[in-house]
């Protein structure tokens, strides 16, 4: 899933390890989420959302177009 994690992290000058520390996950997990190789669970997505004070849908993009056609 595409996301803004890398950009949000860079805006705070955080390394992957810094973000991993904040989320209590490994650097590999941060890297896998950033590169779209792993989709976080709902609890972790909420944790990310709270950390950056942004709604989940502003951080993650599931590329679903259906909602725009309604």
């Amino acid at each position: 899933m595409k996301n803004q994690l890398k950009v949000l992290r860079a805006m705070r000058s955080w390394s992957q390890a810094d973000l991993g520390e904040h989320l209590d996950v490994s650097r590999q997990a941060v890297n896998a989420i950033e590169t779209g190789k792993y989709d976080p669970s709902l609890p972790l997505a909420f944790k990310i959302s709270r950390l950056f004070a942004l709604p989940i849908e502003e951080i993650f993009d599931d590329e679903f177009e259906g909602a725009h056609n309604d």
């Binding site: 890398k6 950009v7 992290r9 860079a10 000058s13 955080w14 390394s15 992957q16 650097r27």
Partner: peptide, 15 residues
């Protein structure tokens, strides 16, 4: 550029 800054020195060190 923000995208260029996303790989920090700390990330390189970790690798």
């Amino acid at each position: 550029n923000l995208k260029e800054r996303t790989m920090t020195d700390a990330d390189n060190m970790a690798n």
